[in-house]
């Protein structure tokens, strides 16, 4: 029982930290209709920026949290610049151009990161407030990973709240439906796009910063996470927030519970699920059928 509980929590914490990144990817696609290859790069940059910040200001006395906030901020600004100066020119053109452009960002920033921080594996220690383990009654579990679960849930509810209950959320939802009518109604659509792209990137940056103590910073982490995020949104449905949520948790659980039931096959399970979704419900579990 204890063992199963821990494996469940392993899957949950991994899935929920994956959600932070996949959610941004999915929302950006929903609004801008751009499949952002560079989303994993934003995640990676967030991690390295947090590393840099922590190495200057230290981990204690809230240093870690400042570093996380800084990662989000830097990514938001960087993404705004990218959207305003470059990506904006590609809307309405063939999707191939957008793919090539975001892929170019992947290559560019992976070289920038290599130049600035080298290729060795880097790591941040756990923030002192969250190191150690928590007694959950059934089992002890690392505090930091419990915290990651909490962040994932809070972000999911927060984003949902903004979408459903605020004026901005209504505008963003309207932008996914029909941008021309929205523009005709006097809404500044380019600004909506800018904010969504920037917020999605900030979420990825924060995700990378929060993942840094639990995982590690290394070359190639950008492509690893983007592949997992694509799987998440394929399973959950591209453009759907709760789809990304369910997809991310499913992937986390398939890896950890899968190891319990069918060791040696746990890696394959994720791909089997993806193939099944593509075969029987290609628009994803919670996605919308095109043209619906």
């Amino acid at each position: 029982m204890m063992y199963a509980t821990i494996q469940f929590l392993n899957g949950l914490s991994y899935g929920l930290s994956l959600f932070l990144v996949a959610a941004g990817l999915s929302i950006i696609f929903g609004v801008l209709r751009v499949l952002n290859f560079a989303h994993g790069t934003f995640y990676m940059l967030g991690g390295y920026i947090a590393y840099e910040a922590v190495s200057h200001i230290g981990l204690s006395d809230g240093g870690f949290w400042i570093a996380v906030a800084l990662s989000g901020l830097v990514l938001a600004v960087l993404a705004a610049i990218i959207e305003r100066l470059m990506l904006r020119k590609l809307y309405g053109r063939d999707e191939v151009y957008q793919l090539l452009f975001t892929f170019a960002l992947v290559l560019l920033f992976s070289d920038v990161i290599r130049g600035l921080w080298g290729t060795q594996v880097l790591s941040i220690s756990f923030p002192p407030e969250l190191s150690g383990a928590q007694d959950l009654g059934l089992a002890y579990y690392p505090r930091y990973r419990l915290f990651l679960c909490l962040v994932g849930i809070v972000v999911a509810i927060g984003v949902w709240f903004v979408f459903q209950r605020t004026r901005w959320g209504r505008i963003i939802r309207a932008a996914t439906q029909d941008r021309e009518i929205l523009g005709a109604l006097g809404i500044n659509v380019p600004l909506v796009y800018l904010v969504v792209f920037s917020a999605g990137a900030a979420l990825a940056g924060i995700g990378g910063a929060l993942a840094a103590p639990a995982l590690a910073l290394k070359p190639g982490m950008d492509t690893e996470i983007i592949v997992e995020c694509f799987i998440v949104v394929i399973i959950g449905g591209l453009g759907s927030l709760w789809g990304a949520f369910i997809g991310a948790i499913l992937i986390g659980q398939l890896r950890s519970i899968g190891l319990y039931f069918v060791p040696e096959w746990e890696i394959v399970l994720v791909y089997l699920l993806m193939i099944a979704v593509l075969a029987f419900r290609p628009w994803g579990l919670l996605g919308k059928r095109e043209g619906e």
């Binding site: 063992y3 494996q7 991994y14 995982l215 190639g220 690893e224 950890s256 060791p263």
Partner: peptide
């Protein structure tokens, strides 16, 4: 025996398996 793939970044399921 546990066999993490070369490119995994999260070893926790394997760590739990071995601790069990």
């Amino acid at each position: 025996e546990v066999w993490p793939a070369l490119n995994v970044s999260d070893y926790t399921p394997y760590i739990t398996e071995v601790m069990n």
